[in-house]
């Protein structure tokens, strides 16, 4: 074997450490994940089909029978619940996206690159949060079309959107862990529903909890999705105390603080 090393025209890359690189890598990954949404806009349509069905069901099918909501017309009570349910279900996207990237070997390629380790998950979750904003704006428009009225100021309504996007961001971390733990997108989808059902249906999103059995109401009053829905109602309708806004923020930060490191560890070890 020849001992002379070939004069290699390797293209020099800069050391990939430091916060600035982490931000750039995260941006690149975010761009990649959002491009998929641009290329396959049906995904966005599918994302609002299910909440749309819920809007029609609760607004027009059950709505007439549900009369006992305090202070506001039922449609105003309902829509914040639908919004939060929508961003929560949207987090399935995180699990499916990561599971598919893993299944297709893309995570392996990314791990072999001198990029920031946190950018893969960060780029995924931030892209999904951005997607949430688009979806919430679409749903808000649909809400206005079916007679939804806000009762507060524009900044507060924007605050309400921010609150649910923050909650969606936190839920994405739970789903990042699920996505990295299963073998493909279908498995991720299947694993998601048992977790989502008790969060979204056993809640105050569609009906007040006081008509529920005691044990169910106990859970439904205290779980984070209900608290976030009340926080959004506080900001958009003014019917709930603002303490629920803070309660929701604390839940979102706590979920992120616990689940993000678990997701990152799972990514490194998978």
């Amino acid at each position: 074997m020849s001992s002379t090393a070939p004069s290699f025209p390797a293209i020099s890359t800069k050391p990939g450490v430091g916060l600035a690189w982490a931000v750039r890598d995260t941006q690149a990954m975010m761009w990649r994940n959002l491009t998929m949404l641009r290329r396959v806009p049906q995904l966005l349509v599918f994302a609002i089909v299910q909440p749309l069905i819920f809007v029609f069901m609760f607004r027009y099918v059950f709505g007439g029978a549900i009369s006992s909501v305090p202070g506001v017309p039922y449609v105003d009570y309902l829509m914040p619940g639908i919004f939060v349910q929508t961003v929560t279900f949207g987090a399935i996207n995180t699990a499916v996206g990561l599971a598919e990237d893993k299944n297709k070997g893309l995570l392996e390629r990314l791990k072999s690159l001198p990029m920031s380790r946190s950018a893969v998950l960060g780029g995924r979750v931030l892209a999904d949060a951005t997607r949430d904003i688009v979806i919430v704006v679409l749903m808000l428009t649909i809400g206005f079309l079916v007679g939804f009225h806000t009762h507060t100021s524009v900044p507060k309504v924007i605050g309400g959107v921010a609150l649910m996007v923050l909650f969606g961001f936190a839920i994405c971390w739970i789903f990042a862990v699920i996505g990295l733990s299963v073998s493909n997108g279908e498995a991720a989808q299947a694993a998601a529903f048992p977790l989502l059902a008790p969060l979204t249906f056993a809640s105050n999103a569609f009906v007040p909890t006081k008509s529920m059995p005691h044990w169910l109401a106990y859970w439904a009053d205290r779980q984070p999705l209900s608290i976030t829905v009340r926080g959004v109602r506080a900001l958009m309708l003014g019917t709930e105390p603002t303490s629920y806004v803070w309660g929701s923020i604390i839940w979102s930060l706590a979920i992120t603080a616990v689940l993000a490191p678990i997701a990152v560890r799972r990514f490194r070890n998978s």
Binding site: T13, R24, R32, G105, L106, R109, L113, P114, M115, A119
Partner: peptide, 28 residues
């Protein structure tokens, strides 16, 4: 450089975008 048994490229990006993305993640 690593090329795997699965073609680890993003199906929804174009060929060019895939290569530019990998270049960017290599900090070019």
């Amino acid at each position: 450089g690593l090329a795997g048994q699965f073609a680890a490229v993003d199906e929804n990006l174009t060929g060019r975008e895939n290569l530019v993305l990998v270049g960017r993640l290599n900090h070019l």
